[in-house]
Design a protein around this nucleic acid. Structure first.
Lengths: 188, 188
DNA sequence: CTTGCCTATGCAACTCGTTGCATAGAAAGA
DNA sequence: TCTTTCTATGCAACGAGTTGCATAGGCAAG
């Protein structure tokens, strides 16, 4: 159950509403975790009922009121306990890999456009991460020196960058393989 | 719902029982997808009821009988339809990244052992993948030339290898960052 | 001879995560 | 003016995935 923990971290970094959290999960936190607003609202409600979070109703002008959540002491203790637990390393979980192995029983060439589409998405993500890195950590407008929290955010972002670069190189490898198979005589 | 598709691919590569599938999901298929035996049994039962799979009772000596599943024509059509669909690229989803950002609100140094543990797991996985690559694709006992299915399995395995290498490099980056933070004065 | 592991299948209960839908006021563009 | 988009929250239903437990014979180590 890591969504709880991701929410705690995000709210410690900055308190906010469910809606704001959902947008963060499309951006910085979403580099390594995704969640829809329904999931977030549901978990926020449960965590608040359990005393992990505090809520504050914030009236707004020209837009609906919001509920601003922040981390209460028990929530902080929960996060701390989790940080000291050992968690299992995760695997890749790529639908695309299933498709590629499945293509052996169908038409491999039909996958080319799909792989190219994925490549474009990952290329855009990489560009987005690199722009964020320049803006927040390595560019002229970035704070110097970085504090511990920023250093930790930066190393996570570097992970996202490395992941996208690796993925793009792999997708290129897949495309080269598909083209080789399409060019070669179809028997073995 | 990709577990269905992963099962179809695995059964097309070789028919087998739920138990055998569960073990494959710990190995080759598990490079990029995981599933427990309960999940697999449940999905197999549903897919068989839907006519996607055929079952054959296989009596065995010295061990319990097993149900050997194989892909029926509708299952093959289902897989083919999925292969021609466009799927969304996935994100990383690393618990560890959440922990690292959370460490800013706790003790960063306490994460060192956890990161080192993950590094050891990924190092072992990489060694395992490289051994498999040598055995099945690049070594002297590998078939030459590879057929299309083997080429596709190889490119998926290369993805796993690239992923593990990238992950190990990132974990080293994290360790270096944690040591730097521990050595530096704790203020900003 | 007892404990634990391997093969083999399965139920029950639960949480996690997705999809579709609904509400509702404000702003911006066609 | 009409439609779309943005902010903001939420329900209902379903499917995906996890955890604990149960059964049951064979095999091997202590």
């Amino acid at each position: 159950m890591a969504l709880e923990h991701a929410i705690l971290v995000s709210l410690l970094e900055k308190p906010g509403s469910g809606y704001e959290l959902a947008r963060r999960f499309e951006r910085s936190i979403g580099y390594f975790w995704t969640a829809t607003h329904q999931q977030i609202y549901r978990v926020l409600k449960r965590m608040e009922a359990d005393g992990m979070l505090a809520v504050r109703e914030v009236p707004q002008q020209g837009r609906p009121d919001k509920k601003e959540y922040s981390v209460a002491a028990p929530g902080r203790a929960l996060l701390s306990a989790w940080l000291h637990e050992l968690i299992e390393p995760e695997s890749m979980r790529h639908d695309l890999a299933v498709k590629i192995r499945g293509a052996a029983f169908d038409d491999p060439a039909a996958l080319v456009r799909e792989v190219e589409r994925h490549r474009a998405v990952h290329r855009d993500r990489l560009a987005h991460y690199l722009a964020g890195e320049l803006r927040d950590f390595t560019g002229p407008d970035a704070p110097t020196p970085l504090d511990a929290g920023q250093e930790l955010q930066h190393v996570v972002l570097r992970g996202g960058i490395a992941y996208e670069r690796m993925t793009i190189a792999w997708l290129d490898d897949i495309l080269a393989t598909l083209h080789r198979l399409a060019a070669a005589p179809p028997a073995g």
